[in-house]
C-alpha cells in the first residue's frame, strides 16, 4: 500500500497525461444522444421537477431525483426518463423505464460528474411527446486526494 515518492511522481505524471487525452461528451454529443432517445421528435420544457445540488462536494457521487407531472394511468403515463450530460466521457447517464404500475413518475439515483456542467432530464410520455428540464451543477475539487 505504500507509495514511494518516485511512484507518486509517476502517478502525478500519469494523471496529467490523462487530462490531455480526453474522451469527452460535448454539448453537441449530448444533443445527439437526446435525439437518439426521442427519435428526433420535439421536446418541450416543463412538467419535470429535477432536483440536484447546485454545488457538490465530490463529483463521484451526486444525488439527484426526477419527478414528472403525470397521472400514471394506463392511457396517460411516463414511459421513460432519460438523463444526459455534456462533459463526462459519455453523454448518456441512465434511462429508467416506467409503467402504469409505477404509481408515480419518480426516480432517484446518484451520478458521477466529471466537471461543472449542465444535466438534462427528458421524460417520454405514453402519447409520444417529450418534456425536459435542465440543471447546472458546480463541482468542487476535494483537497488532499491520494493520487
Amino acid at each position: 500500500m505504500n507509495t514511494t515518492r518516485r511512484q507518486f511522481s509517476l502517478l502525478a505524471a500519469g494523471a496529467s497525461f490523462a487530462l490531455v487525452t480526453p474522451a469527452r461528451a460535448t454539448p453537441d454529443s449530448m444533443k445527439e444522444s437526446i435525439q437518439a432517445f426521442t427519435g428526433g421528435r420535439p421536446v418541450t420544457d416543463g412538467r419535470i421537477k429535477f432536483e440536484i445540488s447546485l454545488l457538490v462536494e465530490n463529483g463521484n457521487s451526486v444525488p439527484l431525483s426526477v419527478l414528472v407531472d403525470s397521472p400514471m394511468t394506463k392511457d396517460n403515463h411516463v414511459t421513460r426518463i432519460g438523463l444526459f450530460n455534456e462533459k463526462n466521457p459519455m453523454p448518456d447517464v441512465a434511462i429508467f423505464n416506467l409503467t402504469p404500475r409505477s404509481g408515480r413518475a419518480q426516480i432517484a439515483t446518484r451520478m458521477r460528474l466529471n466537471d461543472t456542467q449542465f444535466i438534462t432530464a427528458i421524460a417520454e410520455m405514453s402519447d409520444g411527446t417529450y418534456f425536459s428540464a435542465r440543471s447546472g451543477v458546480i463541482v468542487t475539487m476535494p483537497a488532499c486526494v491520494e493520487e
Binding site: N60, S61, V62, P63, S65, L83, N85, N88, P89, M90, D92, V93, A94, I95, F96, N97, L98, T99, R101, S102, G103, R104, Q106, I107, A108, T109, R110, M111, R112
Partner: peptide, 29 residues
Amino acid sequence: TYNGEVVFSAQLYPAITANPFISFTTIAT
C-alpha cells in the same frame, strides 16, 4: 419484477456512481 411482471427497469451507463443507488415507486397490488 412484482409477482413476475416487470414494474420498473433501468439501463445504466458508466456515469452512474459506484455502489449504484436506485429509488423508484410502485403500487402495492
